[in-house]
Structure formats: structure tokens, C-alpha cells
Design a protein around this nucleic acid. Structure first.
Length: 224
DNA sequence: GCGACAG
DNA sequence: ATCTTGTCGC
């Protein structure tokens, strides 16, 4: 009943992450990027329904090319460190509905900036064998060096003596984003793409589009 | 033991 | 994640 690389049993999740994490690739292995996808999910307030969307943008114009949607129910609880088990079933359904695959995926969450180096972006990238980047709004763990206030300034985030991601300022004087490689992407490439995808706002356009889409879906299904 | 903890 | 839009302030 469960896809390979996933489990609906929280007790098995950590062990699975331990098996998958060694397969994550931190070197650049991507084709020319034309289609960049952003994925996000919105949850029902007093229930377990959820709405997921993947928005594919033209990497050059940042205009929306395709959108895939999925409406379902949350079957896994939110546990820090196990987010991918809660969100991947819905996100994978969206990616399978795309007419053409994305060349690069940006997830709302972390890549290897994770206790077992397998955040949602790494887990997704591995299961779909697609280049992926983790882009979180809050720092899950580690210690970040100080960074300047200019757009593009960044500082490494380390944990247990390892470089696991970077704090990246996408807009002057605004709180940084926490970027980390998901799969098949290096630290520098991950930062470069997030910066390129966020020319105007703090968050990359692909994530903003996906976020707006899932909110519209929830509003339409709920009301208000 | 205590606190922290992506979305 | 979610309650919530415009508004006050640097």
C-alpha cells in the first residue's frame, strides 16, 4: 500500500532515512534547466484534508507553464525530522500528473539540512531521480555564520562539523532563507538558483506560485 | 533532565 | 501548517 522509499509507519521512518541518505548526490548533475518546479501543501484547519500543488515555471521568464494539483488526506503526523513522510505522497501524485518532468525542483523545506541528512527535498529528489533544492523559511538545526544585509549575501550553516546548508539573503535587509542541496545539486548551485528565482520577493517565485495555488484550492473546497 | 523543533 | 489586512514605523 506504500510506495518504495516511503512508509506510513512513523516507527520505520528513521531507519528508512538512514538507508536512503547515503544515496543523496551533492554534486551537480543536471540537464540544461528550462522547467523549474515549486511544490507546496496547504492543510485544513480543524481536520486532516490537504491540498498540494506543483507549479512549473519557465526558468528564463519565470512565467507559469504548467500546474499539477492533488487533494487528499494527511496520513502521517507532523514530526520534526519526518516531514517528507507526511508530504511526499501528495507531492509525488502531483509530479506524476505533469505532462513533462521538471528539470529542477525547489521544495518548501530542507534538503540535507536535516538530522539524518534527508529532508523533504532530498527524499523527493531521490525518489524521482530529479535535481532538487531545499528552501526553508526557518532554521531547523545547526549554527549559521553571520551574513551581510545585501541581497545575495550568504553564510554556511554547520552541524556536527559538517556543512549542511546556507543562510541566504534574497532581499536586502530581509530575514534570510535556509538553502540546502536536495539531490544532484551542489551548495553553490542551490544558492544560485534560489537567488535567481527570487528577484523581487523573499521567497523564490516557484514556491510563491505553489503557495498561492494551494491556498486557492483550499478556499474553493472549504469556503471563506 | 530541559528545551528546541522544516511544514 | 494555521488564525489575519492594512497599517504604523525605520
Amino acid at each position: 500500500m506504500t510506495r518504495p522509499g516511503l512508509t506510513s509507519d512513523p516507527a520505520e521512518a528513521e531507519g528508512l532515512q538512514g538507508e536512503l541518505a547515503p544515496r543523496v548526490e551533492l554534486n551537480d548533475r543536471l540537464d540544461p534547466v528550462r522547467r523549474v518546479a515549486g511544490a507546496d501543501i496547504a492543510y485544513e484547519i480543524g481536520g486532516d484534508r490537504l491540498w498540494a500543488a506543483v507549479c512549473v515555471l519557465d526558468a528564463t521568464t519565470l512565467s507559469v507553464i504548467e500546474v499539477a494539483r492533488f487533494e487528499g488526506v494527511a496520513t502521517f503526523p507532523y514530526v520534526p525530522g519526518l516531514l517528507s513522510f507526511r508530504e511526499l505522497p501528495a507531492l509525488l501524485a502531483c509530479f506524476e500528473a505533469l505532462r513533462r518532468p521538471a528539470d529542477l525542483v525547489v521544495c518548501d523545506g530542507n534538503g540535507i539540512l536535516h538530522p539524518r541528512r534527508l529532508g523533504v527535498a532530498s527524499h523527493l529528489g531521490l525518489l524521482l531521480d530529479v535535481p532538487a533544492i531545499g528552501c526553508a523559511k526557518n532554521q531547523l538545526l545547526g549554527t549559521a555564520g553571520s551574513l551581510g544585509l545585501a541581497r545575495g549575501d550568504h553564510a554556511p550553516i554547520e552541524e556536527a562539523g559538517e556543512h549542511v546548508g546556507d543562510a541566504l539573503r534574497t532581499q536586502p535587509g530581509v530575514k534570510p532563507l535556509y538553502v540546502s542541496p536536495g539531490h544532484r545539486v551542489s551548495f553553490a548551485t542551490a544558492r544560485a538558483w534560489v537567488l535567481k528565482l527570487a528577484p523581487t520577493y523573499r521567497q523564490p517565485e516557484v514556491i510563491r506560485e505553489a503557495d498561492q495555488e494551494v491556498r486557492r484550492m483550499r478556499a474553493a473546497a472549504t469556503g471563506a
